[in-house]
Amino acid sequence: MAVQLLKERYASEVGTVVLGATKEQGGTRSVSLTVGGEAALPFQHYEGSIPNRPIIAIEVTDVEPNWPEPLKEALGDVIKDPVAWAKKCVDEWGADAIYVKLDGADPDGANRTPEECAKTVKDILAAVGVPLIVVGCGDVEKDHEVMVKVAEETAGEKLLMGVAEQENYKSLVAACLGNGHSVIARSPLDINICKQLNILISEMNMPTDRIVIDPMIAGLGYGIEYGYSIMERGRMGALQGDKMLAMPMICTVGFEAWRAKEAWASEADFPGWGAQKDRGPAWEAMTAAALLQAGANILCMRHPQAVKAVKKNIEQLMETK
């Protein structure tokens, strides 16, 4: 007798967000991408449709990053030039989108002006056709100036801009709202704050299809299971009809994975850990693979080799036969 699979029936589905606007849509991108929309838990194709595959945004910083040497070596000289770097991400490493981090705005660092930051974003827009995700340096006051300027200068491009947090979301949301961009809503590994922040942002009349959740994650070995269970809980909520948890999710995989000693420590210090050039990207790829299973829709990554492995993983997971 044939075994009959018991299938879950879900009341609702994850919402969608469109990244990037083409010429017809009022922007200059050669492609716009839709993320989200799944009507079942990750890759459970037999229980509901998974219409859009997760995408990979490769991280580019506007000033040369202070990243571990082995990672910088793999990226090469382009890390000194964000435009060339972005181009290489798309042309050679297969980025679906570029994740631009404006670290140069940091008042304790290069302290670049909002105008300079906006110019960098516009130069990258001119060099590549994929959608852009743009986040500030993390200094609340400076980011306020920078992100407002960037939002205005790139009006209509449908950027995904971050990050809005519970104590500090109004100016970024207003800037995105007025210039046709979408917003990243970040909560500190807390499903209750995640939901509340989405409500607060919605109350400013931001449509839910222009909000992406950043649940905050941790890297493999450093508490990834906390992030995983928060994401899983959010997804269950979304599928059961909770509209304020139903936005697609973005995960800063590269940032978290490369903080782990296992990713960057040298072979001389830890001879038993294997070859450094494989270990780092493997750590990043494994972090990404776990988060895909938790429901991540946008992965922000760094190492080309890790990107290649995760792209293959996504391709296999999206096969329905």
């Binding site: 499903i191 209750n192 704050i193 939901k195 509340q196 409500i199 809980r233 959010g234 909520g237 909770d242």
Partner: peptide, 8 residues
């Protein structure tokens, strides 16, 4: 525990 708590 039927819907996820938030302040609102």
């Amino acid at each position: 525990n039927q819907s996820i708590y938030c302040d609102s």
